[in-house]
Amino acid sequence: MAELSAARWRVTSVGEDATMEIAADDLAPSQGTRNSSVRPLERTEEQRALGQLRFEVVVDGWRFELIAERADRARLRERAHRTSSAGTAGAVTGVRAQIPGRVVTVSVAPGDIVERGQRLLSVEAMKMENEILAPRAGTITRVDVEPGDRIELGDELVTIG
């Protein structure tokens, strides 16, 4: 429970440059409940895959379309995005842990040829099983973990050559 109450959320307002990070601890439930409504909206496939949620919130008549996701996941996604976009074809790409947790399955071995988006391994974190996918196509040159290993944020997991 401690882990959950400490969760931080990143909330982005669609159509404008506004991103807010809010810890569940910061919440003052009475604030803003006057004249407000929250309505879940349908998500795109991509938002679903990223674990993002979409809401329409109306406060004092102002309407916002908000996308919410866990702040830690958002940061990891951004870092992973930076890493993958930095690596050009033929370069070596290290796949790192985007979340601390425990390795559940490892689906690849050195020498395997993988497609972009192919499952490499799954990690359990915050009671969720997360798949880690290949950021690009290539050949697996190293696998640094095996099922049951505890991993920390940023640990090297798999290397794609």
Partner: peptide, 18 residues
């Protein structure tokens, strides 16, 4: 209002998780 809106979303998510 936008800040309050973000808090309402976070509160809703926290409630649901717990």
């Amino acid at each position: 209002a936008r800040e309050v809106a973000a808090q309402l979303v976070a509160a809703r998510l926290a409630d649901r998780d717990s």
